[in-house]
Design a protein around this nucleic acid. Structure first.
Lengths: 165, 165
DNA sequence: CCTTAACTTCACAATGTTCTGAAACGAGCG
DNA sequence: CGCTCGTTTCAGAACATTGTGAAGTTAAGG
């Protein structure tokens, strides 16, 4: 059986996965270039790639890589590290870190909650509309707590399944 | 104290909330017009509006309403009902139904999982990249189960808090 | 049936978004 | 201290998205 190992990976297979997975991320709302960069990192053996490598694999300009990476770093989906003794930069998708980022739609949820609270107040908390908004708000507050607990359970689950695998 | 009731709602306050909340939804990836329509429904007293009412409140053409509503219905975020004895259509945001829709990023997650499975196979499940993809896949499978349980808990919580006033 | 009200579809115009090439920047090295 | 490699910034072109007006479709009511 021909299972890719080490350096002899089929670049076409990699590219096929990268583009397909990126397309799904785009559909879910991620901008295109960040999605492609992220997928490329995820599919790399080390989880680390330089700007040049990313540009080559995706056939895009350094400028595009720069923009995508800035976006991903802001979302905490990748981290950037300077390669010692060189002016190259390396981008890394850190196993755990990025799940956290995904569930860190928290920042987004927080904003929804604020808007809803304001709505409850300005429409009146005893109007039918106000009550609907209040219930929606309660839902998000509930979810926020639950997600936190869920991530704890995931870490335990993960430890068990992959920690000593 | 002057709390809005019945028909005498301050249209400007409503509009302010609608536009603000819609903006947050847009930021989270929802297309603009669907977001506005949805926010308008959420902020209505009955949770039901006609195409004409939506067009008037949002100052947009019937065509725009039509497109937005089709989108929302596909995402299961609103339901459409024909008003008996009239050719008007009414659009409703059903209290519970739309939380389900939100967590029905499930459809999205399912597609991610498919793409990841394919990646694990084509890159080889014992390569470093393959292992990373496999772990990511495991995470989503975990989340999928957890979300289901969470929604059960929410329904209970909701019943307790809102069910009996 | 024919009229008409309501919704939908379609082509196009307006508007945004996204990537590129070129120029500016800055950190390491001679 | 200036050269050079790598990254970033920026203006603009290519591209995609979105909403409109107008024509088309469907069904209620005369």
């Amino acid at each position: 059986m021909a299972e890719p190992r080490g350096t002899d990976r089929d670049p076409e297979a990699v590219s096929r996965f990268v583009e397909h997975f990126a397309a799904q991320l785009v559909e879910a709302g991620l901008p295109r270039m960040p999605a492609r960069v992220f997928a490329a990192l995820l599919a790399s053996d080390t989880g680390v790639m330089t700007s040049a490598e990313l540009g080559e694999q995706l056939r895009v300009s350094p400028a595009a890589v720069s923009g995508a990476v800035r976006y991903l770093a802001q979302q905490r989906m990748v981290s950037r590290e300077r390669e010692p003794g060189s002016r190259r930069e390396r981008y890394r998708v850190h196993g755990d870190q990025w799940y956290e980022a995904l569930t860190n739609r928290e920042a987004v949820i927080r904003r929804w909650e604020d808007a809803l609270r304001e709505g409850v107040t300005s429409l009146g908390e005893h109007t039918p509309a106000g009550r609907r908004l209040a219930e929606t708000l309660a839902f998000f507050e509930f979810v926020e707590k639950e997600v936190e607990a869920m991530m704890d359970r995931w870490r335990a689950h993960r430890e068990e399944r992959f920690g000593c695998g």
